[in-house]
């Protein structure tokens, strides 16, 4: 704590208001990160951030300042068939499922799986779920090719309470 007090005193003594401001921004960002422990609203906002499902892009962009490495239990599944919200056909050989460390939406937006996913059939259904302390977000996307471009279309996004709330 001594270092923190010295920091604050030095900011005043040296009139270094920019250091104080940077410290304040770090503190506010840390408080935002910690808020998911206590606030259901922030929990859901953070889950939506991972699914690129925030209502406003600008809010999402501001949220991107908060570090979130290896957060939440994230699962994704993908099939080249168009199921929309229907149950996956058990004989669907293109169906894959995986646990992902963070930002499950990247399974589609990041390019490293694209050749494998869209190499033969250029469409698909993508589902992702992220869980955190009693809240789960499930999102379903459809990917379709139009004019030579694969487009993401959001079909559904559901927030659910899960049983591990008090664990």
């Amino acid at each position: 704590m001594k270092r923190t007090i010295t920091f604050l005193k030095d900011c005043t003594r040296q009139r270094d208001w920019s250091a104080a401001l940077l410290g304040l921004v770090v503190l506010a960002t840390a408080a935002t990160a910690l808020s998911i422990l206590f606030s259901n609203q922030m929990k859901v906002a953070s889950l939506k951030r991972f699914h690129l499902g925030t209502d406003s892009y600008n809010v999402w962009a501001a949220h991107q300042l908060v570090p979130s490495m290896y957060n939440f239990d994230n699962k994704v599944s993908f099939s080249n068939f168009s199921y929309d919200l229907a149950v996956v056909d058990p004989y669907d050989h293109t169906f894959v499922t995986e646990t992902i460390n963070h930002f499950p939406a990247r399974r589609i937006t990041f390019g490293n799986h694209r050749r494998k996913q869209f190499g033969e059939i250029e469409r698909g259904t993508f589902r992702m779920s992220s869980s955190y302390r009693g809240q789960q977000l499930i999102s379903t996307w459809k990917i379709e090719k139009q004019d030579g471009v694969l487009w993401v279309k959001r079909l559904d996004q559901q927030v659910q309470a899960t049983s591990d709330q008090h664990e």
């Binding site: 010295t6 940077l22 503190l27 239990d73």
Partner: peptide, 29 residues
Amino acid sequence: SLHPRAAWLAHAIVSLVFIGGAVGKLTPE
């Protein structure tokens, strides 16, 4: 006089990255 502030801010930023990582792992999974 600058160095203690520089080091404190540097450590605060590194701590922020760790806190962001830790808090999202406080789950049963």
